[in-house]
Design a protein around this nucleic acid. Structure first.
Lengths: 207, 207, 207, 207
DNA sequence: AATGAATGAGAATTCATTCAT
DNA sequence: AATGAATGAATTCTCATTCAT
């Protein structure tokens, strides 16, 4: 945690500083939530001088965007892999939900670990830039698959994407509040809800 | 508990100020969004002196909470009425979803009406304290009905409530971005997604 | 000098604060010059809290403008009196020039008094908001009188005003650098330059 | 003193950088005005590294001073030529004023050309370092000629120089605000004002 | 209670200057 | 010499909160 802060400033090369800011940003976004975060919070966490921040980013918005970008870059292949790996839409949904639930349970665990017992999470893992990016990927995947051969019904793709992500996100949120979180049970629930929900949807064209 | 008619003059003024602050809070939360709102914004809107605010609330958080409370009190009977009116869970879901979608579409319309064309909505109707309260009511309703005679399956009630609300909320959000919003279509989509989704859920007890 | 700063804050009434800011503004504008002055400089000088400044003015620009306004209000009657008092334009010019030169010599004297010997003036008295206002008054007076019965020639009034003020200002500047300043001599010089200069001007209409 | 041809390669580069900084300084002083200019502005314009600036100048003040020096060196012969060319003081004044007014009108025109219509000039040509230098030259010329055979009266030379320059400068400023600027008229006005003004001046010695 | 001016901590941002490379 | 990232003091401005009236 204090690693970055305890490094001498001089030793940090240029790209290390950029990374230090991103790391600090990730940490404080997770800790305080996007709106509560100030540029100062990020800077403080890096141990850099305040002016240095502005050599890399113009605002916390840019940091968030860069983080989301990073996330998208890292997760896009994972999602892609999941889709290729899976036989049919159903197995894709189950795999994606499981991966997501495991990820947020782990994030939550890490978060609670570093905290005094009384303090409860203020920010949900799914609000991190990375997760925003993942949601974007999934949305695109569903929208692309709508009405296609994968088994996704020919209903409104925006509605479908919104509904699927909403279920995963909010069931996941409930799951992470449980001690211990029942990852398998929650994943089974969310997957069933999504798959059955989609299955019964009215088709857009012809019966 | 204390009837308005039984309040003396002084208490009248007192509660008028409280109400003025709540009204102002509702307005600015809707206008600016929770995070962007400052106590000054609320106070300015009331015309009261800034110090007066602190006679009634300690922070904007308290105002928001009071508003949500108000909402809960006002909407609880509406929800109840909807449930009593409906024959079975399905017709309750359809009625509730339709009512909600109509409400947010109307809110959105009113919002856009008062704006120059270019400006897009910054705050979603469902983020208002009142809607938070409605979601709470619905959550309780579903949780109470789980596994009961109304047709709600015997699955995890927290997950079910979360999933149902999530679908309604996020499909509703997508709907309100469309010009014109297809209320009936979106309601049909969300209802089908919820009802079919729930129907296929694994039961908790027995096979 | 420290009077204002040593007063307790509480004792200062609202209008006293406004005045304190204006006084501080006048002092620091004279000391540092308009561009170099920061809001902080003004605030520091008042002993008030930084936020208090913004209860009265939005920027140093507003302070300067208020000061100039003040100056205009105070000097307008003086100029007017000078004009009424004077028989003809010539005696007005002589009186105005003398008054001006006496004023800046005095300002300069006061300024030097409070300074260590080595330090030279950084800001000319004529750059104060008050003097800006006076120049404005004089400009209007000359422009109004052009071609009229007072003896002001019928040449371009803007050019005349600019030239007269320019002479007074710059000869005055040179005068104040002399030890001791020869007020009478400089006034005689400037008056002669202005009056003879104007006298020989080509008329605008007819020979 | 050191001829360019005698400079070695290294010195060549050195003086190229110095010149680049001066050029950039001239440009940004003209564009932004002295006070608004930052060292960064100058450096940015050169394309050099920020640290390099400090190998040549210690501050923007030094750049301005060097520019003024340059100007003085370049304009001194021009002024001298004007004086030698002219028969008598009057023709010198007329020639100098005309040259000056043509110069600032042209500068103004060039400035406005590169601007959107709404934007008005922020920096006066006469505030450039070069013009400061020219004024210095003229001041010396007048001071040197005072009471001499050229027709300059035997009055206080500092006052005379100040008054003449003041008239030219401020009438010129007014002229450049007019669309189109009446160069000939303004020059006639300023020349007449100066020459008649000087003519009537009280002599210093003898009655 | 109500008032509203005063407060001062804290946020964003800029920029002259340094200094390791 | 040249480079240019790092520095951190300085500046503007906002806002929750207090408190004398």
């Amino acid at each position: 945690m204090a690693d970055v802060a305890t490094l001498g400033r001089r030793e940090q090369t240029k790209s290390q500083n950029r990374q230090a800011i991103l790391d600090a940003g990730r940490a404080v976004f997770a800790e305080l939530g996007y709106d509560a975060v100030t540029v100062r919070d990020i800077v403080r966490r890096t141990g850099l001088a305040s002016g240095t921040f502005y050599n890399y980013f113009r605002s916390k918005e840019e940091v968030f965007a860069a983080l989301a970008d990073d996330g998208a870059r890292r997760f896009a292949p994972v999602i892609k892999h999941l889709r290729e790996q899976a036989v049919g839409f159903e197995s894709f949904v189950r795999a994606a939900i499981s991966a997501y639930f495991e990820f947020i349970a782990e994030e939550r665990r890490l978060w609670l670990e570093g905290r005094p017992a009384g303090e409860s999470a203020r920010v949900l893992p799914r609000e991190t830039p990375e997760m925003q990016a993942v949601f974007g990927e999934v949305r695109q995947a569903i929208q692309a698959a709508a009405g296609g051969p994968g088994g996704v019904p020919d209903a409104d793709p925006d509605y479908m994407a919104a509904a699927c992500i909403a279920i995963a996100r909010d069931v996941g949120d409930v799951m992470t509040t449980r001690r211990p979180p029942d990852i398998a049970g929650a994943a089974e629930f969310a997957s069933a809800m999504i798959l059955n929900g989609l299955r019964g949807l009215p088709q857009r064209r012809e019966a």
